[in-house]
């Protein structure tokens, strides 16, 4: 578990950081600007689009250093402080550089009792970093996550705010890491409804590459 309770220190962000994105790369393309305009048009005020634009910026620059937050604020003509307050509120916006692949391992509630901690610890040992840290090669960051809404397929994790990996096992993690090292993001994995297994003898979707059926969760070793 993240040890904020044991070591409750809130650190000060760098107040006068050196920009990390080179000036000539710090802009939105015309296409991105058009996309932003479309988003803006869907809300009574431009501020409504800020979360989408922060997402766009994070996908483009891989995280949200100050100059990028400022770029977003300018794009929407919003006070920079307001955008910064928003960016720091949500956990999925990365305020600092993370690994290329960020594992959000759910250890919450259902996952806690179905081996979520086992998977977290296995990953920590395998990658030799603690939750909250990034591997030396900059490839992987491990984070402990709150419920990700996939409790029926616990234990599970999410990769870099993208695909979910359900019904984790050690073997599945091994394969996942190998694949990611090769640069292969796992495909969308559809969890079959148990009733569909009975009535449709399998997953109802024919357009997904990967499915996983209802699995009896493993017995948790870490917590009983």
């Amino acid at each position: 578990m993240t040890d904020f309770i044991k070591d409750p220190v809130v650190s000060l962000p760098d107040r006068m950081p050196e920009p990390v994105i080179p000036g000539d790369e710090l802009f939105f393309t015309d296409e991105e600007k058009k996309q932003i305009e479309t988003w803006v048009s869907r809300y009574p005020t431009a501020d409504g689009a800020v979360m989408r634009v922060l997402w766009l910026a994070q996908e483009k620059f891989s995280f949200l250093p100050a100059e990028v937050v400022q770029l977003v604020a300018n794009a929407l003509d919003m006070p920079y402080a307001k955008v910064y307050g928003v960016a720091t509120f949500y956990t999925q916006y990365f305020k600092e550089k993370k690994g290329k692949y960020v594992f959000d391992v759910c250890t919450c509630f259902s996952c806690q009792w179905c081996g979520g901690y086992d998977m977290l610890h296995y990953l920590e040992e395998k990658l030799r970093v603690h939750a909250g840290e990034t591997t030396g090669d900059g490839l992987f960051t491990i984070q402990e996550a709150e419920c990700l809404g996939a409790c029926g397929s616990a234990p599970m994790l999410q990769i870099t705010n993208g695909p979910y990996v359900h019904n984790l096992t050690r073997e599945k993690i091994d394969a996942l890491i190998d694949a990611l090292r090769e640069g292969n993001m796992p495909a969308f994995e559809s969890v079959t409804l148990p009733q569909d297994e009975d009535e449709l003898s399998g997953n109802r979707r024919t357009d997904v590459d990967k499915t996983t059926s209802s699995v009896t969760p493993p017995v948790s070793e870490t917590v009983k």
């Binding site: 809300y43 501020d47 800020v50 979360m51 989408r52 509120f89 949500y90 956990t91 999925q92 709150e146």
Partner: peptide
């Protein structure tokens, strides 16, 4: 509208602030 990781946004009035581009 795509959220960004905050349980509190499920609470309806927080959700509204989030939609408006404020801290939720």
């Amino acid at each position: 509208h795509k959220g960004a990781g905050a349980y509190i946004c499920g609470e309806e009035s927080s959700l509204m602030n989030s939609l408006e581009g404020r801290r939720a």
